[in-house]
Amino acid sequence: MLRRRDAVIAALGLSPRVGLAFARNSFLRLLSYRVRYVVGVANYFLYVSVHYYLMRAVLEANPRAVEPLLSPADLVTYFSVGWAARAAYHNEIDGRLAEQVASGELAMELIRPAAYPWIKYSEAAGESLFRVFFMSLPIFAVLAAVYHPLLRPPAGAGHLGLSLVSLVLAFHIYFAVNLLTGLIAVATLKIQGFLWAKFLLVQLLSGVMLPFAIFPAWAQPWLARSPFAALGHTPVLLYQGKLTGMAAFEALALEAGWTALLLALCAWAWSRARRHIIIQGG
C-alpha cells in the first residue's frame, strides 16, 4: 500500500522530500539579500500608513457613511493585519515564470525531476516561511510600536488561530492565482498587462486597499464569497473577531473550497500548457 502511494507520488513528481529541498533553497536564497529585505519592511510600513491616512481622510469628510464600523482603531488594525498577511503570502512567481518563458530559462526548470507546479509551490512555501519570520512579524512589531494605542491585539486566541488557518489557505489561493497568471505567458510570451490587471484585481477584491464595508451594500456579500476575500478581508475579520461562530466556519470552508478548485485548475492548466511550451533563444 505504502509502496503504491510512493510510486504514484513519484509518477506525479510530487515528492515531499524534493519539495522540501526546493523550499529550503528558496529560504536560503532570500537570506542572501539583506538590503532588499530592509527596504521591503519599510515599504510595508508605508503601505499601511498611506492606506490608513487616506481612509481616515475619506471617512472624516463623510463621517456618517460607515463611521460606526470603522473607527480609527479599526482602520489601523484592519490595514496592519491585512498588509502583514500580504507580506507573508506574497510571491512573484507569475512575473518570474513570464521572465523564464521570455528568456528560455524555463528549459532549466523543466529538466528537474519534479513536476514544475510542485517546484514552484515548494519555492513559494519556502519564501513565505521566510516572509513570516523576517517580514510579517517585524512589520507588525514596527506598526505596533508606532500606532500603539490604536493597533488592537487579536480578539482572542481562538480568533487568532482561525485567522492563521485562513492565512494558510490564502497562501494557496494566492499561489494558484499567480501560477495561473504566469502560465498565460506560455501562450502570449509577454504578460505585463495581465500582471497589472491581476495586481489591481487582487488589491481591490481582497480588501487590502479598501475595506469591504466601503463598497455598495449589494456588492459586499459577493465580494466576501470571491476567492480574493481570503487574501485580506477574511483573515482580518477573523483576527478582529468580527467573523465568529458559524459565519467564521462558513468563510473558512469557502476558502478551502476555492483553494481546492484553484489548485486543481493549476494542475489542469499546466498539463495543457506543457504541450505548447517553446524555448526562446536556442
Partner: peptide
C-alpha cells in the same frame, strides 16, 4: 548558454540541493 545552478548560491549549495533532489 544557460545554467542549472542557482545563481545566487555558492556552488556547494547548488550541489547539495541536487543531492537532495536526486
Amino acid at each position: 548558454q544557460r545554467t542549472q545552478l542557482w545563481w545566487d548560491l555558492a556552488v556547494q549549495e547548488s550541489f547539495s540541493l541536487l543531492q537532495r533532489i536526486y
